[in-house]
Amino acid sequence: MHASWLNQVEIYFSVVQRKVVTPNDFTDLAQVEDRLRAFEDRYNATAQPFQWKFTTSDLDDLLARLDRHTVDHQEESAVALAA
């Protein structure tokens, strides 16, 4: 459960970085504070819990496909080298 909570924090700060801090065109620290507070007000008014759609079953399927792709690629490379 801790990983999910930490992921939420990382997502939030990623959004802050992209939507508030970048571009870095502040003239003083007060302007940074104002922009962060305005973002916080907007975010809190519209934020909703993140709905995870990628399940452990989806991860298992993805890893199995990657394994098959890797094996297929290794076999193709071996055939090409033998030719």
Rank of each mutant, 00 (worst) to 15 (best):
H2A: 15
H2I: 14
S4F: 07
W5P: 04
L6A: 15
L6T: 15
V9S: 08
V9W: 06
E10P: 00
E10R: 13
F13C: 02
S14V: 06
S14Q: 13
S14T: 09
S14D: 05
V15H: 11
V15S: 10
V16Q: 00
V16T: 03
V16W: 00
Q17R: 11
K19Y: 02
K19F: 05
K19A: 09
V20H: 00
V20T: 02
T22P: 02
P23N: 07
N24Q: 10
D25T: 13
D25I: 13
D25W: 08
D25R: 12
F26E: 04
D28S: 01
D28H: 05
A30E: 14
A30K: 13
Q31M: 13
V32H: 00
V32D: 03
E33H: 01
D34F: 02
R35F: 04
R35P: 01
R37N: 08
A38G: 04
A38K: 01
A38T: 09
F39Q: 00
E40H: 10
E40R: 05
E40Q: 15
Y43L: 10
N44Q: 13
N44V: 04
A45L: 07
T46R: 13
A47P: 05
A47M: 15
Q48G: 05
Q48W: 10
P49V: 08
W52D: 05
K53V: 07
K53N: 03
K53R: 12
T56N: 12
S57M: 07
D58L: 09
L59P: 02
D60A: 09
D61F: 00
D61Y: 05
D61W: 05
D61M: 09
L63A: 13
L63N: 13
A64I: 02
R65S: 09
L66V: 04
D67C: 06
D67N: 14
R68I: 11
H69V: 01
T70N: 14
T70V: 08
V71S: 11
V71M: 14
D72H: 12
D72Q: 12
H73A: 11
H73K: 06
A78W: 03
V79W: 10
A80P: 00
L81Y: 09
A82G: 04
A83T: 06
